[in-house]
Design a binder for these strands. Structure first.
Lengths: 347, 347
DNA sequence: CTGAAAGCGCTTACAG
DNA sequence: CTGAAAGCGCTTACAG
């Protein structure tokens, strides 16, 4: 039951622990034949060196801690997939922890990562919570933030170019002739939300469209909140004909709400999302959106982190640019007359 | 930089290491005041006991390893969320590893879990790969399989009642008057696929509908495969009016393909899924499906595993029953005449 | 090339 | 209630 130790291998190989240790790490200090013998014995016995014992002396655990709000979020899941792939490729294991944005939980997670002596930490799309600023910067290991929602000069980060992406999305709507363009934001999105709003405004300005604050409403980054937000937009006297949504989940909710109200996408309402979740291409209609390379960003975050762990230089901020993926949720707006006729018959 | 050890705390508290160790674990063997003092000193210093050092002597790491095919799968992500929540609640941390169903990767993952001396392992919806049978049963730690695709008597498991769920789904279609009911399976689904097929057949029989092998086609459990599979079904001379899909991802693909062909759901084609992914309620139309309590199943798997780790008795198999969630993707089939009329105009 | 020894940071009988 | 000592399973100067 009890697993084998280096001593057991040493005994059957009739050498010292030191030699076994060296042989197993393929040290050139060991005689070729002796090394081969030891490795064969270890292999046959199914010996597995204890990572705990090793890390106790090397002071490296080859583990990284990943904190997410919730792994149930498809965006987060993709990011984590990229993180794990990149980590595994370099012999690192990942501890995954949900924080659910609960301060108490975040504290426990950080404590646990400290006790486990993770070599580094990645924090994904952190919302409020206690993780910020002080707690993170007090930590002794490198930290990489991915799409974090608050400025944090203490840590390295991988960020999507929110402004550029939302500019492209909004411009796409404008280029189809939309003049009344709404924005459904995320009230919990902080920095991302502010930046996407700013890109939206810049695109309006570039298109010579006056910014109307009434066209900016906020959901919660999920379908439910977006449904309500779209409702507000549609109750406007001069409702938008196109809407840019904070993310695809919001666009999904908006699509659903529009359907409930008998509005067709894109004929009655054009919609653009942000993220390009896997499912977005299969929606009805397929969603036009700004692609975030989620697994790629997870990979980059890991690469930055592993570089920091190895005390190699790494860029403090890597900015990733989204790509507008044009599908079928945008078309030219209907004329006002056609719209009101339809509204009458639908009402 | 170097983190504090028990010695540092002992020194400033002017007691021995042993006493610090005891105080930190709230041992009743320590004088109340001394204990309080030690705990305060440790707290103020931000001391964190080394999990590695502790586990070296206790032979417990309070970690579990979780192997998934890919965390990008929304079903898997929800399961893992439940696993992590239940583990965290009991002071366990989780190592997450993608296997991507690659045998080489699976071997590395298992080796890594062995070296890290995880206290137990959960394997989710494992497809082929090398994890099965021998490799798993050789392991010295308890293992729990969740919706595993192969019989494995060596391990405990948490399973959805595939047969019951697909029976209900198929029966739901039959009860709406469908007589030509297709099944889009998952060619990589092994046991789950076989059981869902069996439930489908049982429901047909119960409804007095003769089983037609031509109505059974297989995708890959994802939208793409289902699109192709639906194409096969629709090319039949006597195409089905309703289709039960292996999972919601397949239903999403079928929905998309139907839309491309100008078929409306449910008027022209009724669809039922399996899983009840978060997004399914927001599809257009909202998907009727069999709910799998994914996070709950993750929790149960963890609870079973922790029980085994504690050497308490645990049920070898816990079967979870799905619930049919009726939404809007099923209605009565159109008459043959109406259908062919529409087919003509659409063609 | 090899081994004996010290030490990583804890826990836990054992003795007092 | 407290401490000295041994030991968990490794790695790594140090000496040969």
């Amino acid at each position: 039951m009890k697993s084998l130790s280096i001593k057991d291998i040493a005994k059957t190989a009739r050498v010292s622990n030191s030699t076994v240790s060296r042989a197993l790490r393929n040290s050139p200090l060991v005689n070729r034949e002796t090394g081969d013998l030891i490795r064969r014995i270890a292999e046959d016995a199914g010996y597995r060196p204890s990572a705990a014992a090793r890390s106790l002396v090397t002071r490296r655990t080859h583990t990284i801690g990943v904190v997410v709000t919730t792994i149930s979020d498809p965006f987060v899941a993709d990011v984590v997939s990229g993180i794990e792939d990149a980590a595994e490729a370099q012999g690192f294991s990942v501890f995954l922890a949900n924080s659910h944005a609960e301060p108490a939980r975040e504290k426990r997670v950080v404590r646990s990562f400290e006790e486990r002596r993770v070599d580094g930490i990645i924090v994904t799309s952190s919302r409020v919570g206690s993780l910020h600023v002080s707690m993170l910067s007090r930590m002794e290991v490198p930290i990489v933030l991915l799409n974090n929602q608050h400025d944090n000069e203490a840590a390295h980060s991988v960020m999507i170019d929110n402004r550029g992406g939302s500019f492209a999305a909004t411009q796409h709507l404008a280029s189809h002739g939309h003049r009344r363009i709404g924005y459904i934001g995320d009230r919990g999105g902080y920095q991302s939300d502010a930046e996407r709003l700013s890109g939206y405004q810049a695109a309006l300005e570039a298109a010579g469209i006056e910014f109307d604050p009434a066209l900016v409403v906020r959901g919660d980054g999920r379908p439910e909140g977006a449904r309500e937000a779209l409702g507000q937009l549609l109750s406007l006297a001069d409702a938008p004909t196109g809407v840019f949504c904070y993310n695809d989940m919001s666009a999904l909710g908006a699509m659903h709400e529009a359907g409930k109200r008998g509005l067709r996408i894109p004929e009655d309402l054009s919609l653009v999302g942000f993220d390009d979740l896997y499912i977005s291409q299969y929606l009805n209609p397929p969603l036009t959106t700004v692609r975030q390379p989620m697994t790629g960003m997870g990979r980059m975050a890991t690469e930055t982190l592993l570089r920091l762990i190895a005390r190699e230089p790494a860029p403090p901020v890597v900015t990733v640019h989204g790509e507008l993926i044009v599908r079928e949720s945008v078309c030219a707006p209907r004329t006002a007359r056609a719209r009101s006729a339809r509204a009458r018959s639908a009402g």
